[in-house]
C-alpha cells in the first residue's frame, strides 16, 4: 500500500520532530537554542512559501517581500511609535501581518494572470521594488544601516523562553497550514496546479483561488518576519532581497515540494549546512553549491523522496 507509506512516515516524523524540538527547549545550551530559533523562523518562512510553490504551482521570487514587510512594520511601530510592552507588541504584530496581506493583495492582483517563467520574473521585479523602497526610505526603515533597537516582547529576551514560544507558535502554524493543505481549499489548489484549464472548465474561479493562496502564504511569511525582527532586535534590507527568497526556494526544493513537511526538512538541512560547513572549510560556499547540485540531479523529488524510497524498499 504505497499510499499509507507517506502517512505512516508522517506520523513517526511528527512525533520525532515534536520530541526533538521540546528536548532542545528543555536541555539545549544557549548556542543550540539560538541556532534552533533561527531554524524555526526560517522553517516557517519556507513552509509558507510552499503553499504557493508546491501546492499551487506558482514559483514566487517575491516571498521575501512579505517576510520583510512583516518584520519592518513591526519594527517601525516599536522603534518609531513606541509600541512596546506586551499589548503594544501584539498589536504591532497584528498590524504587521495585515500590512503584508495588503501588499500581497496588491502584488497578487497584478501578477495573478501571468504564469510559468513570466510569473518568476514578474515576482522578482516586484519583490526587488519592495526591497528598493526599504533601501531608500531611510527616515522610516533605516535604509541599508538597518532598523535597530527593536525592543521585542517583554519577558521574551531570554533565549530559552523565546525559543519555546517560537516553537509553540511555529508548531501551531504548521498544524494550521497542514489543515489548510488537506482542506477542500487545499485540494482545489492542487487541482488547479495539476491542470488549470480543467479546473476552470468545471467552474473553479482559478485566479481567485490562486490569489487566496498567495495572500494566505504572505500572512504566514509576515509572522515569520515578526519573529525575525524580535529575534535579531533589528531588521535589515537583505531580508527583502531576492537572495532571501532564493534561500527559501532552495530549502523548499531541497526538502521536496510535494511533501508537506518537505520545506521543514529542507530548512533544517540548509541551515545545518550553512552553520556546519564554514567550520570545516573556507570554501564552504562551494560545498553548499555541490550539495545543492547533487540533490537536484539525484533526488529531484527532494530529500523526503529518499526517505520514502528507503521505506518502500524495506517493505518489499
Amino acid at each position: 500500500m504505497p499510499a499509507s507509506s507517506p502517512a505512516r512516515l508522517r506520523h513517526v516524523g511528527t512525533v520525532l520532530v515534536l520530541a526533538a524540538g521540546l528536548a532542545i527547549g528543555v536541555f539545549g545550551r544557549e548556542t543550540l537554542l539560538v541556532q534552533a530559533t533561527d531554524i524555526l523562523i526560517f522553517a516557517l518562512f519556507a513552509l509558507s512559501l510552499n503553499l504557493v510553490v508546491g501546492q499551487s504551482g506558482m514559483v514566487s521570487m517575491c516571498h521575501a517581500a512579505f517576510f520583510a514587510t512583516g518584520g519592518y512594520v513591526f519594527g517601525v511601530l516599536q522603534v518609531k511609535y513606541g509600541w512596546t510592552g506586551v499589548g503594544g507588541a501584539a498589536a504591532a504584530a497584528v498590524l504587521a501581518i495585515a500590512a503584508s496581506v495588503l501588499l500581497a493583495l496588491v502584488i497578487g492582483l497584478l501578477i495573478i494572470r501571468v504564469s510559468h517563467a513570466y510569473f518568476i520574473m514578474l515576482t522578482l521585479a516586484l519583490g526587488q521594488l519592495v526591497y528598493i523602497v526599504i533601501w531608500k526610505w531611510h527616515s522610516m526603515t533605516g535604509g541599508d544601516d538597518g532598523l535597530i533597537g527593536i525592543a521585542g516582547v517583554p519577558g521574551l529576551q531570554d533565549a530559552r523562553t523565546f525559543y519555546m514560544v517560537a516553537f509553540v507558535i511555529v508548531a501551531s502554524c504548521t498544524a494550521l497550514l497542514f489543515t489548510i493543505a488537506r482542506s477542500a481549499f487545499g485540494h482545489t489548489l492542487t487541482a488547479i496546479r495539476d491542470n488549470p484549464l480543467r479546473a476552470a472548465f468545471i467552474g473553479v474561479p482559478v485566479r481567485l483561488f490562486r490569489l487566496a493562496a498567495f495572500v494566505l502564504a504572505a500572512s504566514f511569511a509576515a509572522l515569520a518576519g515578526v519573529g525575525q525582527a524580535i529575534f535579531h532586535r533589528g531588521m535589515f534590507p537583505s531580508s527583502a532581497s531576492f537572495i532571501t527568497s532564493a534561500d527559501a526556494l532552495v530549502a523548499v526544493v531541497l526538502g521536496g515540494t510535494q511533501w508537506f513537511f518537505g520545506p521543514i526538512v529542507g530548512a533544517i538541512t540548509f541551515k545545518i549546512l550553512t552553520y556546519g560547513l564554514p567550520h570545516l572549510t573556507d570554501y564552504w560556499l562551494s560545498c553548499l553549491g555541490i550539495v545543492i547540485i547533487v540533490v537536484a540531479l539525484s533526488l529531484p523529488g527532494g530529500l523526503l523522496s529518499l526517505v520514502a524510497r528507503i521505506d518502500s524498499r524495506w517493505r518489499k
Binding site: A246, V250, V253, L254, L285, S286, L288, G289, I290, V291, I292, I293, V295, A296, L297
Partner: peptide
C-alpha cells in the same frame, strides 16, 4: 536549483 549551486561554486 543547480544554477544556484553553480553561482556559489
Amino acid at each position: 536549483l543547480p544554477s544556484i549551486g553553480l553561482i556559489f561554486l
